[in-house]
Structures are given as structure tokens and as C-alpha cells.
């Protein structure tokens, strides 16, 4: 093995991140993620004088939007968490290895030469960037749209008490980070799927189906023994951060579960990728 292999150079990582950032489909994906909260806020603004529906109607946080723009971000995160955010991560993760294989560039990448473990690490770093960026984009766009249309103010927590806007924004940031960790676990599974095939679309669809299946299984009370092992089981725990006082220890199951998924599936991706023949 050559010198270039062991030396830790950020060049490969930077080039990978740039490659992800300049891809039109990724930019379009981010724009779509950012559009949802804007549409949501606009729709809520247009239907405000709807007094017929009492409080407590509609999905979580929706009823509070009209009082405070802050909740647009939360409602948008809640809505996008079930499909949009996983799809965004699935797109990146599916593309990671299978995309290179499909384009025939994987071979050339490995002859540079780059160790396969390092290539996987770089690819996962790219997925991580996406996983943490996506919720932040949704939250930021939601905040902007919400503040513009509904104004800002003190935020009512789930416990019925009020916290200042600065504290609330800090909590929103922690929520985004927590969701980032959750999506990073999804990305690890996606990276593994991506090493199994040469069709990026296949890996993406498989991962999306896995997410949806996980959500559906989580809704079936008869399968409650399975629930603790489901990937998506603790995603909605982000609401714990909106209690007063914050139930920090309630985030532990979600973080542990995400860590376990990352450990198992990254090592599986390594086992698969470093041992397989690269034919394209």
C-alpha cells in the first residue's frame, strides 16, 4: 500500500462533500424539504378564520401554529419525519457506493489508490452531512416562514408552561441534532444496502420501504415485543425536549438504539464492501 493511503488528507472528504453539494438532485431535494414548511405555513395562514375546528384538531403542533410561528418548524419536522427526511437520506445513502458502481467510477476510485475502508468512511461522512443538514434546513425554513406569517413570541411547552424564544430556539437546535442522529442510523443501514447492489435506485427504494415498514410495524399493538428494536421507534421522542423541565434521560433509548444500528450496519457494510469483487 502506498503512502497516500495512510496519510489523513481532507482532500478526498472535501471533494466528496462538494460532489454531493453540487449535484442537482441533492439541491432539488433540499429545496423540496424547505418548501414543505412554507406551504404548510401558507395553508395555515389562508385557513385561519376556521373557528369550527376546535383546538386539538389536526396533527401534532398544528393547532398552535396560528399563535406562534415557532410551531411551523416543529409541525414541519413532525410531518417530514415520516417520509420526506428518510427519503432524502435514502437518496444520499443509496447513491453512496451503488451510484459509483453504476456509473463505473467505483473501479477508478479504488485504483487511485484509496483503501476500501477509507472510501466507506468518506461515503458515510457525506451521508452524515446530509442527515444533520436536512432537519436543520426544514427547521430554518419553517422558522422563517412561521415568523414571517405568524410572528414570534414565548413558546408554550407540552407541560403547559412558557419558555422564552431564545431557550425555545436552542431546544429546536437540539431537536435537529437528535433527529440528525436518528437519520444517521438510517444512513448506516442505507450505506450497507448500497454495498449490496449496483443500482442506487434499488438501495434507495429498499431503504424507504424499510422506513415505512418500520413505522407501520410500530403502529401495530400486537407486535409490541418488536417495537424496541424498530429503527423508527424512538424518532418521535424529540418531543421530550419540549417538556418543562426537559426529560433528558428520555432521549437515551433513542440515542442508544441509533448507536446500535450504526455499529451493526457500518460493520456489515465494511464486511460486505471490503470483501467483494468490484466488477464495474
Amino acid at each position: 500500500m502506498s503512502q497516500a493511503d495512510t496519510r489523513l488528507s481532507p482532500r478526498f472528504l472535501l471533494s466528496e462533500l462538494r460532489l454531493i453539494a453540487v449535484r442537482r438532485r441533492n439541491q432539488a431535494g433540499l429545496a423540496a424539504l424547505a418548501a414543505v414548511p412554507v406551504i404548510l405555513a401558507a395553508a395555515m395562514k389562508l385557513t385561519v378564520p376556521d373557528a369550527g375546528r376546535g383546538p386539538g384538531q389536526g396533527p401534532d403542533f398544528f393547532s398552535q401554529i396560528t399563535g406562534n410561528g415557532y410551531f411551523v418548524a416543529l409541525a414541519a419536522l413532525g410531518v417530514e419525519l415520516t417520509l420526506f427526511l428518510p427519503i432524502a437520506v435514502a437518496m444520499l445513502a443509496g447513491d453512496a457506493v451503488a451510484g459509483e458502481a453504476n456509473q463505473g467510477t467505483l473501479r477508478y476510485l479504488l485504483t487511485v489508490p484509496v483503501a476500501r475502508t477509507r472510501l466507506l468512511a468518506i461515503k458515510y461522512a457525506g451521508i452524515l452531512m446530509g442527515a444533520f443538514l436536512a432537519p436543520l434546513v426544514v427547521a430554518t425554513s419553517g422558522l422563517l416562514a412561521g415568523f414571517l406569517l405568524f410572528g414570534a413570541g414565548d413558546v408554550t411547552t407540552l407541560s403547559g408552561t412558557r419558555i422564552g424564544l431564545a431557550t425555545a430556539l436552542l431546544r429546536l437546535l437540539v431537536i435537529c441534532l437528535y433527529l440528525g442522529v436518528c437519520l444517521a442510523a438510517l444512513g448506516a443501514v442505507g450505506l450497507f444496502l448500497s454495498t449490496l447492489t449496483e443500482q442506487p435506485m434499488g438501495a434507495t427504494i429498499a431503504l424507504t420501504m424499510l422506513t415505512v415498514a418500520s413505522f407501520v410495524l410500530g403502529q401495530i399493538p400486537q407486535l409490541d415485543w418488536l417495537h424496541p428494536y424498530l429503527l423508527t421507534q424512538h424518532w418521535r421522542d424529540f418531543g421530550e425536549l419540549l417538556r418543562e423541565p426537559v426529560a433528558w434521560e428520555a432521549l437515551i433509548p433513542g440515542l442508544t438504539s441509533a448507536g446500535a444500528y450504526i455499529l451493526v450496519f457500518l460493520s456489515a457494510a465494511w464486511a460486505r464492501f471490503s470483501g467483494r469483487d468490484v466488477t464495474s
Binding site: P228, V264, A268, W270
Partner: peptide, 19 residues
């Protein structure tokens, strides 16, 4: 190369068993 699969398998056992 097949032995590599022992790593994720062991990780899965440790994670599930550990819990």
C-alpha cells in the same frame, strides 16, 4: 474474506444481548 462477517454478527449479538 468471509470471516469479516463475524464483526457485524458479533456487534449485533453484543448490542441485542447487552440490552
Amino acid at each position: 474474506p468471509a470471516l469479516r462477517w463475524l464483526v457485524p454478527a458479533a456487534a449485533a449479538v453484543v448490542v441485542i444481548g447487552g440490552g
